[in-house]
Design a protein around this nucleic acid. Structure first.
Lengths: 220, 220
DNA sequence: TGAGTTATCGTCGACTTGACGATATAAGTC
DNA sequence: GACTTATATCGTCAAGTCGACGATAACTCA
C-alpha cells in the first residue's frame, strides 16, 4: 500500500494585535477557490522537517527566524478525494512583517485573523484548531512568545503577544516582574526604544532557556 | 512520489518500579535479530489512530485501558533501507500486567527497563527517547500518570508512577496533599486496600480533569 | 503486646501570584 | 516652561502554594 505524503503549515503571526494565520486560496481542484493551509508534497529525497522549512521559505521568505515544529499527522482515509494522502502538519510562529508570496499551486495567500476564519478545505479546520491550541499551551511553559517578535523587543510587545494569543488581558506590572525574574526568558540589551509614546522601554532579546520554570500559566 | 506508511508504538509501563518499554526482536531483515519498537503498516482503508489502536491491541490485548496519543512522524529519506517509509509514532501508557504477545513479524516481544536499553533498529532509539520525554513532560500538567495504574489505585501507587518515570523521589506527604487538593485529579471511591503492610490506603479512580491546574512540576 | 510499616493530617517558613499604589521618563499641548 | 497624557518600571501587601518535616492513625507481623 502506498500513500502520498504532504506537509501543511499552520503559520501564525500577530498582525494589528490579532493572532492571524496564513491561508491560501486553492487554484485547482479539489476545493478549488476555497481557503486552505499552505502546503505541498514532500520531495523524493527530502526529510519531513526540510519539506516544512522549504514551504515556510516559499510562503514567507523567512529563513531561520521564528519557530518551526512538527504539529501532528493526519491521514484519515477520506480526507482527500484524490486518494490516500497523509499530511504532516507543522506549526510555524513568525514575527509580523513578511508579506505573503503566492505559492506554486496557490492563487493567493493572505493573513486572516483566527477570530474570523472561513471554512477550510480538507481537514484543515481541525489542523488549524490543533495548531492554535498548541501555540496557546506552549506560551505557558516555553519562551516561544518571542518567536512572534522581532529580534529585539520590549516587555510590552511580548505581553501583547500573550494577550493576542490567549485572548486575555495581563497586568503589565505583574507580567514585567514575571518575565524579567524568570531565568533565561529574556536578556536586556541595554538599548531602549525612542520616539514612542510614554517612557522609553528597554529592549530585550530572547534568552537561552528552552523552557520557563516556573511556567507562566493561563487562568483556570 | 509515493511512500510506505507505518505506525510504530512507544509502549510504556511500570514493571517492578522501573519504567519499561515493549521491544520486539525482528524476525526478518532489515535489522534481523535486532530490537525494535512494535509497529506495522497502515492498512489501505485505515485511519492512523485506528492503526495504532490495532497495534496496541495486537501487542497487549488491551482495549480502552491506558492512554494512546500520537507522538510524531519520522520520515528521513534513509531511515529504512527498503525505501521511502514514513512512520507515525504513537505513545501508549498502560498499566502493568499484560504479558506481551508475539506480533506477526516479531519473533518475540518483551518489556525492557528504559535504564537498560539495547541499541534499536532504524531510528527507533530517537523515537523512544522522544516518547519518554513526552511522557515525563505530560505527567507534569495532566493526570495521565493514572494511565499506568489499574482502574482503582492508591495515592502511593500514583506516586510510584511519578517516581519511576521521573527517576526522582517525592515526599509522600506533600504528594498526597497535592494530588488530593488538585481539582479533578483523582476521586475517592470510599473503598480501601486491605491485607497490605501498614495502614490501609484509600482507593481512588482517575478524575475528569483533562489537565492539572496548577501543574505538578519537576525540579529545575 | 510491641515493633515495624505505611497512610494521612498539620505546621511552618520561603516563595509566587494577583491586585494595585507610586514613581520615572518620555511626547504633546498650551 | 508648566501641565497633561501615556507608558515603563518599582514596591507593597495579602492569599495561595510548595518543600521540609513533625505527629498521629491504622494496619501486619512476630
Amino acid at each position: 500500500m502506498s500513500f502520498a505524503v504532504t506537509v501543511d503549515l499552520v503559520l501564525l503571526t500577530i498582525r494589528e494585535g490579532a493572532l492571524s494565520v496564513l491561508l491560501i486560496r486553492r487554484a485547482i481542484p479539489p476545493y478549488q477557490g476555497g481557503s486552505a493551509l499552505p502546503g505541498g508534497f514532500v520531495l523524493p529525497e527530502e526529510d519531513l522537517d526540510d519539506a516544512a522549512e522549504r514551504e515556510l521559505v516559499e510562503e514567507t521568505g523567512l529563513r531561520g527566524a521564528g519557530h518551526l515544529e512538527q504539529l501532528g499527522s493526519y491521514g484519515a482515509p477520506g480526507r482527500d478525494p484524490r486518494g490516500r494522502v497523509v499530511t504532516i502538519a507543522y506549526l510555524a510562529l513568525v514575527p509580523d512583517a513578511p508579506s505573503p508570496r503566492a505559492g506554486s499551486d496557490a492563487a493567493e495567500a493572505d493573513w486572516v485573523p483566527v477570530a474570523a476564519l472561513p471554512p477550510l478545505a480538507f481537514d484543515h479546520g481541525r489542523i488549524l484548531a490543533d495548531g492554535i491550541e498548541r501555540a496557546r499551551a506552549k506560551l505557558e511553559y516555553t519562551p516561544l512568545a518571542a518567536a512572534f517578535c522581532p529580534p529585539e523587543f520590549t516587555i510590552a510587545e511580548l505581553r501583547q503577544v500573550y494577550e493576542s494569543v490567549w485572548g486575555t488581558r495581563l497586568d503589565p506590572r505583574n507580567f514585567h516582574r514575571k518575565v524579567t525574574s524568570t531565568d533565561g526568558f529574556v536578556v536586556a540589551t541595554g538599548r531602549s526604544t525612542a520616539g514612542e509614546r510614554g517612557r522609553p522601554a528597554q529592549l530585550f532579546v530572547r534568552g537561552a532557556a528552552p523552557v520557563l520554570y516556573p511556567p507562566l500559566l493561563r487562568k483556570g
